[in-house]
Design a protein around this nucleic acid. Structure first.
Lengths: 191, 191
DNA sequence: GTCTATAGGGTGATAGAC
DNA sequence: GTCTATCACCCTATAGAC
């Protein structure tokens, strides 16, 4: 159940998160997976295909985790707040968003696609919850759910950037506090 | 006036923006600068020192450009709006923020420092302008200027991430629209 | 399925001629 | 100041034995 193929994908997931695609070599993957060259080229055609498997798994895992928060208990705004405030390894950055900075992922349609799809899904999902919030009177009807969803997502992704720039997790929390503060008087408790 | 040293720094600036530190090789720098190995190692001790010169210049240039918007004409909120909406090469990402994704920049205190300082300065500057806005009654006094400044910065940096993920500049604009929308009814014209 | 050996090219740096 | 030559090592991939 802990096949070599599994270990290769998991090692690649970690390294893509820590060092990006350009910064990750097959050699580093193999050493972390405790596997030889032959194993990697037996299971995958090369670095791009292995990276694709890793990115797809990371994207799926992320979606599943987010869906737990967004379809959980509480009012729509409470669920979004729970998602934004949940515990994270802030200084490691977003495992999907960080990939957008990698030139070779941006240039390879195969590798770029799952990144794009993840954000399309996530934006749509947040917009849906904001729509619910509006429908139940929890959110100011003057707000555009699509634009507000973009803003919330941007604060999340940008929060990681600020934290990494500062070398400390706090700025992430401040950015989240700020957007929730902006949202707060556009909100009223849904009774 | 277009010394080899100059060309090396400019080429490095471009490549750091396009490919990051890990993705940029001395060979690529030299070829773009049309210089030989010897020139680079005459003017700089190696890749890190050249990158430091490039990052410092990019950071200074960015600060100067932003200061133009933030200390320009208009009310405080108008100036921030002008800064957020100004023309940019959105798909190239933020030339400073993008560096936070690079593992070797994060691990080298010398290279990380100018990135950190740029964001400290920028956050402080936006918070100052928000303070002004509050003082002249343009902004809701209930808003925390420091947290709101973090949010605005995060939207900016996250907007780049969303745009790159989408492969299109529009999401950046939507995120900015959204945060300005959230700000708008916390704002009144400063007469 | 996994291993080792090997390949051709790139990486970051040094040496020494001009 | 700039060039070319050289270096030891790493990168991604292939071949073929086990």
């Amino acid at each position: 159940m802990e096949s070599t193929r599994e270990r290769l994908i998991e090692s690649t997931r970690q390294l893509l998160w820590e060092r990006g695609y350009v910064g990750t070599s097959p050699k580093a993957i193999l050493s972390r997976a405790d596997a030889g060259q032959g194993s990697m080229y037996h299971h995958f055609s090369g670095k791009p295909e292995l990276a694709l498997a890793a990115i797809n798994r990371t994207a799926e895992e992320m979606r599943a985790g987010i869906e737990v928060q967004l379809s959980g208990p509480g009012t729509p705004v409470e669920r979004i707040t729970a998602y934004l405030r949940r515990e994270r390894d802030v200084l490691k950055g977003c495992p999907v968003g960080g990939l957008t900075q990698d030139p070779e992922i941006m240039d390879d349609p195969m590798l770029h696609q799952p990144v794009e799809e993840t954000f399309v899904w996530l934006h749509g999902r947040i917009a849906e919850v904001l729509d619910e919030a509006r429908a139940c009177g929890e959110l100011d009807p003057a707000l555009d759910p699509a634009a507000t969803a973009s803003t919330i997502l941007a604060v999340l992704e940008g929060g990681y950037v600020l934290a990494r720039a500062a070398g400390a997790p706090e700025p992430f929390g401040y950015a989240i506090d700020g957007v929730l503060g902006l949202l707060s008087t556009r909100t009223r408790s849904a009774d």
